[in-house]
Simulated assay, not measured.
Amino acid sequence: MSYDNTCKYLAETYPADFARWLLASETTDIEVLKTELTLEPIRADSVTFLQIANQILHLEFQTTPKSTPPLDFRMLDYYTRLKRQYWCEIKQVLIFLQPTSSEIVLKTQYVDTNTTHRYQTMRLWEEDPIPLLANPALLPLATLARTESPTDLLTQVAAAVDMIEETDERQNISACVQVLAGLRFEKNLITQLFSEEIMQESVIYQDILQKGLKQGEERGKKQEALELILRQLTRRFGAIEPETQQQIRTLSITQLEELAEALLDFTSPSDLVNYLANISPLPKVTGDR
């Protein structure tokens, strides 16, 4: 089950609630933007872009600090692409869902030789659960908030879910709660407080399930293409440099397919290096799973 897809669903279904929570904005004139940006396309399922008046709220949900390229660079990369495309004020919030000892979750900026880029970092396990409990759209996130008694907190969330009057919304929020609660609680406790049948009837549950299956299929196809190309290159030119291999691993399925055709014309390893330099000026972003 994809925790990222669950958060993405919540942010895109209830954008005004997330804007109110993170920006203290009461506007309802919000547009959910596509997640694919120009230049070398990047796309991550944990990313949500909300356009609010002349401002963009960029939300990035993460269950783990591990990322290629690193998360701080990704935030800079997204910022420059968003700025180029929409040319407006941008607020970025990197939300970590699961406690970790990694120092990455404490970082709020990317620093390079001539560049410093700042963004906001939120660690849900340190957040006050009260504002989250007060809003049905944020109830799933409340399961991961700060508490001295996690079981009592989950019980409060369950009670709040039961109070949602509209049936479809109650089912969908319940499904999201159960998915995210799985990051913190044992399955037995979750099933005691929530009906598994309600979850399975939820539209969002089915949507998340299908997206998860599709992503698995895509990862499988990419892995097969990657292994085939690396075998072909090794057979033609011998051992491939680790840096070159890493560049190839960052390519999308479409780029791998194009490389498979192009390598038929390569006569030396330098042809491969030059080809990669021309098609891959920026690494492809991959989110955690």
Score class of each variant (00 low, 15 high):
N188K: 11
S67A: 15
K83A: 12
I190M: 05
R249A: 14
Q247M: 13
K284F: 09
E148D: 15
S202A: 15
T100M: 03
S174V: 07
S46T: 09
G220D: 10
Q192D: 13
G182T: 05
L264C: 05
T100N: 03
Q156S: 15
P65S: 04
S46Y: 10
D168N: 11
V32C: 07
A11M: 03
D112I: 02
L251A: 02
E261I: 10
F194M: 06
G287K: 08
E36T: 15
D17I: 03
D17G: 03
I253H: 10
A159Q: 13
A181I: 05
Q62K: 15
N274R: 10
Q192N: 13
E217I: 13
L256P: 02
R146T: 02
Q246K: 12
I253E: 10
Q98N: 11
T64C: 10
I30S: 04
T234G: 10
T64P: 01
I164G: 08
G182A: 00
Q92C: 07
P41N: 04
E26Y: 00
D288M: 04
L259M: 04
L39H: 15
E103L: 14
R146W: 05
S270C: 01
L230R: 08
T113H: 13
K222N: 06
T267K: 12
T250H: 10
S252V: 02
G220I: 01
T121Y: 08
Q156L: 13
I208N: 06
T244S: 06
T108W: 11
C7L: 09
Q246E: 15
L106E: 15
P283N: 04
T151C: 08
A159F: 08
L193A: 08
L189R: 11
I173A: 00
E26L: 04
F237S: 05
V157F: 05
F61Y: 10
D112R: 14
S270M: 11
E60S: 09
L226P: 05
F266P: 01
L153N: 03
R235D: 11
P140D: 07
L259V: 03
R84E: 14
D271F: 03
L138Y: 00
A159I: 07
D17E: 15
T143S: 12
P150R: 02
A16I: 02
S252L: 04
L124Q: 00
E243K: 11
L264G: 04
Q206I: 07
T244A: 05
P136D: 07
I240D: 02
D288Q: 07
P281S: 07
R84D: 12
L132I: 01
V105Y: 05
R123K: 10
T254C: 07
A24N: 15
E12C: 06
Y3I: 08
F96I: 02
Q255L: 05
E127Y: 01
R184N: 02
T167M: 13
S270N: 10
N54M: 07
T38F: 14
I130G: 04
E201K: 15
V32R: 02
K222P: 05
M122G: 00
E89W: 00
S252F: 04
T80P: 00
E40R: 12
G212Q: 11
A145L: 03
W21A: 06
L22A: 05
T38L: 15
A239P: 00
T191A: 09
E218I: 13
E186G: 09
